[in-house]
Amino acid sequence: MKLILKIWRQNSASERGRFVDYSLSDISPESSFLEMLDILNEKLIMEGEEPVVFDHDCREGICGTCGMYINGRPHGPDELITACQLHMRKFSDGDTIVIEPWRARAFPVIKDLTVDRSALDRIIEDGGYISVNTGNAPDANSIPVNKEHADLAMDAAVCIGCGACVAACKNASAMLFVSAKVSHLALLPQGRIEARERVHKLVARMDALGFGNCTNTGACEAECPKGIKLTNIARLNREYYRSRIF
């Protein structure tokens, strides 16, 4: 495959960035998107140029490290995947691919396509956990959990914190992320104990970090590599009002 890549290059958060065009040839349609970027970087190194900096770790679609905005979509043109699970067969020969970093005030660019997503960790620090010493694994049946709630909690717990929801949202809101964390814990008996303070603190921190507001547009749900549902946001709102009113 022959490709033209239009990639955002930026040295640091304080410097101005710009798009640079690169052309690549002989790319196998079976290679992954990150392998294609590896090939580009090897070429750049051989030519004595600075390689394109991008985040990646497990390359198995489970760590949430790789994140880039590919042709107008976080993680590129496929459903329920991270950028590392995107394959070049999703593109056509001769395509121009525009690659941008996540854009949000809360996610400043570190370099090129790598952004600082620690704002999500700051949110978790404020209560995205349960304060008990876990000790040894307890007996599975000592605390009964309703099957429906256990399933919903697990569905929310699969969030890998990649930030695609923020990147996709027209308001750069982190509501889907926060709602997944709140739901995951609020649905289980162990998490209920601190549910009231948790939802409060998480939402306050999210707002303080400069994320936008939710307008129920659903771009987050459409782009989430783990299929986190918008219903979690309604649950977050429900939990929030409950913590304020009752």
Partner: peptide, 25 residues
């Protein structure tokens, strides 16, 4: 607040499958 949350906009307009009405509220 929403506009301030993304000071630098994307070059490529978003192509996510969403409610078109919500985007134009």
């Amino acid at each position: 607040q929403n506009w301030l949350a993304r000071p630098k906009r994307y070059h490529k307009t978003n192509k996510s499958e969403t409610s078109p009405f919500s985007k134009w509220m």
